[in-house]
Design a binder for these strands. Structure first.
Length: 577
RNA sequence: CGGGGAGUGGCGCAGUGGUAGCGCACCAGCUUUGGGAGCUGGCGGUCGGGGGUUCAAAUCCCCCCUCCCCGACCA
């Protein structure tokens, strides 16, 4: 493509209302334009990127045995009323009436229509399994669209739906989609992890979120850079064996002096007590009071850690847990809030983080206002009813898989796979007849990739101060060819060489963006870096005099020279490495 | 929905009662040509919309709309 004819205007200034790198750069580089809050137009370069992501998704879905179809965006509201999601989605759904006052919505997703379709098209176990997908625009009237393409009201999504005879079939379909998603995000050049989402009450459905690591992500999650461990913060674990190898469980081996009380007036907080006594907060034992089905419980963690409420709930299930609030303490004035220790006589249940199972003496509350206790020893001075991983994971904790340090980062949810079960099949009568003639609801799974969101996630990961640096698999063009003819005697020769080079690369199968504009070198360089094609080829009078073309790799800045006669060969060789 | 901020040319901004300006971009000419060139001359805005106050409103008042940020909410 010749840039002289390309619909492209790059902006020198950052758009005032861009709040993330991806939005800022995609706007500046002329890939997208905002049409309304959370609604964007895709210009030629942006559209090419979108299509390339789409194509990767399509290839991987096809490879996984899914079949592409296309469902309408405009869907009868009646379907959504039947599933109950009319109410569940509420104002998140764009709604409209046709001229006969019949309700419609702009599809925010497509389980209803898919289940309806399958109900009428499939009827026998011989038809199963089936996996159908579409790549279609979705609409959600977000309370607050933001971050450009990351939380848009109109976005391109690949949504797939698997239909199996039973749960085993679903699990196999799910695994195929899971694997396909890993391939998709690998090919897109994203650093990502599949996070098992916190299942709802009583187990719930199995589902994984695919999180692309990015500072602008809207969700915290825990992941290991050394292996594929990942979890959301509520479900994350750490491996204590890496901290406490070879430690006998019997803390009674501690040779500590007897427990003694210390007067710590007006110091209910961990940091205050640690400073007052001249010890590290980690040597304090933090006692968090909770209610477990009406009984008083204590959750014990080291003083420098926080209690993960979800972990606590899992530890004492099926009892229902509620951490004490100020109101609770107000209702129980006998509790010495801020000075409670693990040996509190009224505690019916003591739950401790497993890291406390170590031979050491603690500083903790003395169960008496303005007093703390020193030399408090497990087994001698207090007992634990339940051991569990109770602490909220922080960066640096050991990975439960491999022991390397974990990271707590933010992530962009670029994909989500979900074992749905029979909820929609039952509502829409998507049943099949088994080999014995018995009818069963089809077991469904659903699988989404936010294609337009992936584009933004890629820019978040692949950019620098000068602009975007597309991974080769997604760049709108493979090569950015810059002609710098200048006004000297060599100008015509430079243009001629660039033209030859352009034709040669095209003939060689490369997608080439050719800067043939009558612009200064500075403008061309700046635009090339901003637009972000993976390789830049510069043909100027200087190089031409020596018979060479300069080659710059956008992502690394590495420069090399190719003989003008071997540009295509050089590019082919470069592509191979 | 609560709190805060903002709407002035394609983009970024200035302009607190006197009839709209700067930088970038765009067009023309001349000069310049290896990291967003210079000079000259141009094009382009009913100042978000409506109403009001005033001799006079981008500016003051009222209503509405839109956008942004924080929160709440949430695929």
């Amino acid at each position: 493509m010749r840039m002289s004819g390309l619909l492209l205007r790059t902006l020198r200034d950052d758009p005032a209302d861009a709040d993330t790198d991806s939005q800022r750069l995609l706007l500046r580089a002329g890939y997208i334009r905002r049409a309304a809050a959370g609604i964007y137009s895709w210009l030629p370069l942006g559209h090419r990127v979108l299509r390339r992501v789409e194509q990767i998704v399509r290839e991987e879905m096809d490879r996984a045995g899914a079949q592409e179809i296309l469902l309408p965006i405009l869907q009868p509201l009646e379907l959504w009323q039947r599933s109950g999601r009319d109410v569940a989605y509420g104002p998140l759904m764009f709604r409209l009436l046709d001229r006969k006052e019949t309700g419609f919505c702009l599809s925010p997703t497509a389980e209803e229509l898919m289940a309806t379709l399958v109900a009428s098209e499939l009827s026998s176990y011989r038809d199963l399994p089936v996996n159908l997908y579409q790549i279609q625009w979705k609409f959600r009237d977000e309370l607050r669209p933001r971050f450009g393409l990351l939380r848009a009201r109109e976005f391109l999504m690949k949504d797939a739906y698997s239909f199996d005879a039973d749960l085993d079939g679903l699990r196999a379909s799910y695994q195929r989609m899971y694997n396909a998603y890993c391939s998709i995000f690998d090919r897109c050049g994203l650093t990502f992890r599949a996070v098992e989402a916190q299942s709802g009450e009583m187990g719930g459905d199995v589902n994984h979120e695919f999180m692309a690591v990015a500072a602008v992500g809207e969700d915290d999650f825990v992941w290991c850079k050394a292996c594929d461990y990942a979890a959301n913060v509520e479900a994350a674990r750490r491996d204590h064996s890496w901290h406490h190898t070879e430690v006998p469980a019997a803390a009674a081996t501690v040779d500590a002096p007897p427990m003694e009380e210390v007067h710590t007036p007006g110091l209910p907080g961990i940091q205050g007590v640690a400073d007052f006594l001249g010890v590290e907060p980690s040597t304090l034992l933090k006692c968090i009071v909770f209610d477990a089905d009406g009984e008083l419980g204590l959750a014990l963690v080291p003083g420098d850690r926080e209690v993960n409420e979800f972990a606590l709930a899992r530890a004492v299930a099926p009892r229902k847990v509620r951490l004490y609030t100020d109101e609770d303490f107000a209702a129980h004035p006998e509790l010495p809030k801020g000075y409670i220790g693990p040996h509190y006589p009224g505690a019916a249940l003591v739950v401790a983080d497993v890291s406390l199972d170590a031979p050491r003496a603690w500083v903790t509350g003395a169960n008496r206002v303005d007093h703390h206790a020193r030399n408090v020893v497990l087994g001698r001075d207090f007992a634990v009813d339940v051991w569990a991983g109770l602490v909220t994971i922080v960066t640096g904790d050991a990975c439960p898989n491999c022991g390397e340090p974990l990271s707590v980062d933010r992530g962009i949810e670029v994909g989500h796979v979900f074992q749905l079960g029979t909820k929609f099949s039952k509502v829409f009568g998507a049943n099949y007849v088994d080999e014995h003639g018995d009818e069963h609801p089809i077991v469904m799974g659903c699988y989404g990739v936010g294609i337009s969101r992936v584009v933004a996630a890629i820019v978040e990961e692949h950019h620098d101060d000068n602009g975007i640096a597309w991974p080769a698999a997604l760049a709108p063009y493979d090569v950015h060819l810059l002609a710098l003819p200048g006004r000297g005697d060599a100008a015509q020769a430079v243009v001629a060489a660039a033209e030859r080079c352009y034709e040669e690369l095209l003939a060689g199968g490369f997608q080439v963006l050719y800067d043939d504009r009558d612009a200064s070198p500075g403008v061309k360089f700046a635009d090339a870096d901003l637009l972000g094609m993976p390789v830049q080829l510069v043909i100027g009078a200087k190089g031409l005099a020596r018979g060479v073309v300069e080659r710059k790799v956008r992502a690394t800045g590495d420069r090399s020279e190719l003989p003008i006669t071997e540009v295509l060969a050089g590019m082919l060789a470069g592509a191979a490495t």
